[in-house]
Computed example of a mutant assay.
Amino acid sequence: MSASTRIAGLGVHLPEQVRTTAETERRLREENPGMRLATGLIARMTGVERVHVAPDDWNASDLAAAASRVALAESPGPIDLVVFSAAAQDLVEPATSHIVAAKLGLAAPVMDVKNACNSVLNGMQVADALIRTGQHRRVLVASGEKTSAAVRWRLDRPDQFVPSFPGYVMGDAGAAVILEASDDPEAGIRTSRFVAESKHWAVGTLPGGGTMRPHDLDATYYDMDGAGLQAAFLELGPEPVERMLADAGLAMDDFDLVAIHQVALPYLAPIFERLGVRSDRTVVTVAEHGNIASATLPLQLRLARERGLVGDGSLALLIGLAGGISLGLMVVRL
């Protein structure tokens, strides 16, 4: 049995190619002659200035493997379990974790853990449980989000624009976290809590590849009700966060960093205000990187470390928001 599970390595990969929001709007007009799209509309509504775009011949596993190499360079050593945790995937079968492990040359058991934008948090939750019970000692949790593959550029009907809109500000990225057993009971993952309101599952979908619409080409694009997602999370409210902190005997001012999943800039200030989060203890990523799904929280951790906001011994609160809908909370001592 392990006293705790600590983060031993952290890796993020951001593709070199970027697409500005102005370029996104220009392409939409080119692909859809006669489309009336107000200049700057997407940027005004979301605050997103640009997104990263992976090469056409890259898959989710390539992004995950690139980030994993960074994490493994930071924390060399054997890996005895590979967990691929992302909204994206290479194939329906086999598990994308097999492909990641093969690209990294790792001979270890594998599994996929999938829960939309909370995938990395849930992967860390699973790894923590397996480490604490002695089944594994060093686990690689890897994410590859190639969201650009599901963006609808050609609109057959005007009413397709609104449900496709969130895809225009989603970016590609890879992330990796190495978790390992620690004898320090105060280090690593201190507590976590997950909440789901599954009655809202239909407000944001990417149907392709499942049994509902197995051969429908129209199902390979994002179909999201942005207003419905926002309403669902507002209905959930701050109570789950407040309850977890109360149970753990913590307050927001105890954290050196509060990392939260980000889909649009205008949503952040009301959320931070409602939760009582100080602006100097957050990292805003959505403007420069867009919504990068489950890679968002690892990116914020890395940037916070690079900017000196956190270091060894810092306390971080990770808040994940995902379609379905679900909320993930994790307190980590770095």
Rank of each mutant, 00 (worst) to 15 (best):
S2V: 02
A3T: 08
S4T: 12
T5A: 14
R6S: 12
G11A: 08
P15Y: 12
V18K: 13
V18M: 11
R19L: 12
E31Y: 09
T39F: 00
T46N: 07
P55L: 09
D56E: 15
W58H: 14
A71N: 08
L72S: 03
D80W: 11
L91Q: 13
A101S: 12
A101V: 04
K103I: 00
A108D: 12
M111K: 02
C117H: 10
N122C: 06
G123T: 09
M124V: 10
D128M: 01
I131T: 05
R132F: 00
L140S: 03
L140H: 07
A142K: 07
E145D: 10
E145S: 10
T147F: 01
T147W: 00
R157M: 04
S164P: 01
A173C: 13
A176H: 06
L179Y: 11
S182H: 10
D183S: 12
G188Y: 10
S192D: 09
R193T: 02
E197Y: 08
H200C: 00
W201I: 04
A202Y: 11
D216I: 03
L217H: 13
A219F: 07
Q230K: 13
P240R: 07
G249Y: 09
G249Q: 08
I260G: 02
P266E: 11
L268E: 14
F272H: 15
A293Q: 12
P298T: 09
Q300C: 02
R302N: 02
A304P: 02
R305L: 05
L315D: 03
L318P: 03
